[in-house]
Each structure stands twice: as C-alpha cells, then as structure tokens.
Design a binder for these strands. Structure first.
Lengths: 189, 189
DNA sequence: TGACGGCAGCTAACGTCGTTAGCCATACTG
DNA sequence: CAGTATGGCTAACGACGTTAGCTGCCGTCA
C-alpha cells in the first residue's frame, strides 16, 4: 500500500441475482427492526418464500450476516477514504471523526453487526478489513496512533449507539476533546 | 459527589442464599464457556436443578444477566477507584488505562456482557454506572475528556477481546500512543 | 421431440431455546 | 395440628436454525 492515491477496495464477492435480493431484504429487516428481527422465517416472509428455501442460496444464517458485514465495511471504508482524500492534513482527524460518527449513527444496527462480537475473519473477503481501516493511518501518519484513534472512534460510536452515555447531549464536547487530543498527538508524532 | 475521598458505591442489591448460588454458577458458566453456553437448562444442570425451577428465584434470564452485569460494574469500578486513588496525578491516565485493560482482558465474556449491546438502565442499581465511571473523571479532571478517555479505553478493550485487531502484538504501542495523547490533553485541559 | 439434469421452491420434522402452567413435598407458623 | 409459603418437579408451548426429501419448471442436447 502506498500513501499516494486512494487504495482500491478488494473486489466484492459475486452473488447471484436472487442472493442479492435476499441480502437487500436482510439488510432492510436488520436495519429497521434490529438484530432479533432477522430470522430465517421472517426473511423468507419478506421475499414471499419459506425459510428452508433460503438455504438454496446461503449455507446458513451466518453467511447472510457475513454479506451484511462486508457491505457495511465497504460503505464505511468508502466514506472514510473519500473524506480523508479531500481534506487538508491538519483537518483530517476532526473531519474523519465527524464523518465516521455520522455514518455509524445513521446505520446503528448494521454498524454493531459489523464491529461487535467475535468475527470469523476467514469468511471475510481478504483485505477488506485492512482497506476499511487504512483511512485512520492516512489521517495520522502513524500505525499505532491510527489504531488508537480508530479505537477511540469505535468506542464513542458503539457506546452512543447502545445508549450507554447517561447524557448524550455531552457527546459533541467529548468528540471535540478527543479530536483535539489526537490532532495534537498527530502533530507531534 | 465531591472530589475528595473515594465515592462509595451504591449498596448492592440483596439476594437470597439460593439466588446468590445461582448467580455464582451463572458467572462461572458465562466466564468459562461464553455467552451461548449460559442457557437456563445448563444453569440448572450446574446446580442439580431443572431449568423451570430457576424461575422461582429470578423473573427471567435477563434478571440473571443483570446480576452479572452489576457484579462486573462493581468490580471494575472498585479496581479503577483504587488505582486512581493511589497514583500521583501525572501518572493517573496511564495507570488507569493499564489497570482497566488488565481487568477487562482477564474477564472478557463478563466485560462484553456488561458493556455491549443495549442496556435496560431501569433494571440497574441507580448510581452504579455513574460510580463505576467516575474514576475517569478523577483521572483527567474534565467530564468531556473523561468520557473521551473512557470511550478510548472501551474501544481498545472490546476490540481486543473480540479479536478485531489484525496484529495484537501492536496493541501495547497503541495503548501507549493513546495514553500519551490523553495525558497531554489532561495537562493542557 | 423428448429425456435429462439442475435450479429453486415446498412440507414435515428435529433438537434447542426461553418460558408457563400446574402439581407436590417439605418446613415454618398460627 | 391446619395452613401457607418455599422450592422443587414434569409436561408442554411457541419460536428458533436447520435438514431431509419431494416436486415443478426450464434449458440443453441427442
């Protein structure tokens, strides 16, 4: 990976037309009604099909969820790469954090699915995770600080999504405090 | 809450002797064998009892899990308060982060249960969450920066626990980078 | 044209899960 | 000694993921 140009995402997995429909339906259910709503029976219902028929297209429920995870990683990666590319170096940390929060809060269920709990990395498209994470490196220029910054952003987002902050109205100030700390650290890196 | 002395934790909920045994068994199963292993039937088996009998002691499975969450919050809160109290101001951020990571990584399943996913705050002992979070404020002296620091720590820990870092050997450097950034921010606060 | 094979649906069913209803023995308590 | 609360039990329900096995349709090729 060079630091010039936008790293290209790995080629997305190919799905049949019907499988693509299933993924779209699964995403709609998952995003609107939450994790517990996505059952094989409900998913079939959404498509005018019985649950066992889904197994003609996907090995199991986990495979459907993996497709959703990959969609989410690809989207968030694209959004982050774009903002890093079109921002001045000194503004990158703040801009990246702002963009990340915006995307993640807009897709809370999908984001939680993609980033929480153990993951079967072998089932994921190789390179996708790394590509989705590289904007953080581009923003601060140091791999360790990048990992710390991404962890901060993830912590902020996931705790917000899960409603763990007692007073959410304080969140903008906390984002600002974190952005300032990491921007300063990136400067002195 | 004043900033002098150690804030006392709220009084823990009272449980009958049998309920306490059940919680202990649930914790053992949950910590050793993970979230999926804790079923009502398995929990009963562990106690030489049938699953439906558990409902004589707890309203539902969620109530058992809430007890585990409260245990975890109380423990991690105690550990953090202790380290903040016995550390010099300039070293508090680093020491607190070190301690937090140590506890959480030692109890990964419990930590994930206590901090991930939506929470039924009404079912929690009032004040427990706030008390468990106050060491972060004591470490940096600013509520917003404290929230940011805690979010950073949570992000680092939960991603480590869930195996989301491609190369875990880089983690100490990332913790160090984050500690430095937040220590500097707390100084200039 | 007609046989064939595979794709994509179906029903029936299995085992596991949380949970409820209802029964019964033991042990306090009046 | 009667009565009641406590804490077990079995049987069962509905929802879940998943499998087995059947069927109808459609394109291909002799």
């Amino acid at each position: 990976m060079t630091t010039t140009g936008i790293p290209q995402p790995p080629a997305p997995r190919e799905y049949s037309a019907r499988a693509t429909e299933i993924i779209a339906a699964a995403r709609a259910v998952y995003e609107h009604d939450g994790p517990d709503a996505l059952t094989m029976r409900r998913l079939g219902e959404e498509l005018g099909i019985r649950a066992p028929s889904l197994y003609k297209h996907f090995a199991d429920k986990q495979a459907v969820e993996t497709a959703l995870i990959e969609q989410s990683l690809a989207e968030v990666g694209a959004v982050c790469h774009r903002v890093v590319q079109k921002t001045q170096p000194g503004e990158r940390v703040a801009a990246l954090l702002r963009t990340y929060r915006e995307y993640c809060v807009a897709h809370p269920n999908l984001y939680r699915l993609a980033t929480s709990g153990p993951i079967d990395r072998a089932a994921l498209t190789p390179g996708l995770e790394e590509w989705a994470g590289s904007p953080w490196f581009l923003a601060v220029g140091d791999p360790y600080l990048a990992q710390a910054l991404w962890s901060f952003a993830h912590g902020m987002v996931i705790l917000e999504i899960d409603g763990r902050y007692e007073d959410p109205s304080t969140l903008p100030s906390s984002w600002a405090a974190g952005a300032e700390a990491f921007t300063a650290a990136a400067r002195n890196q």
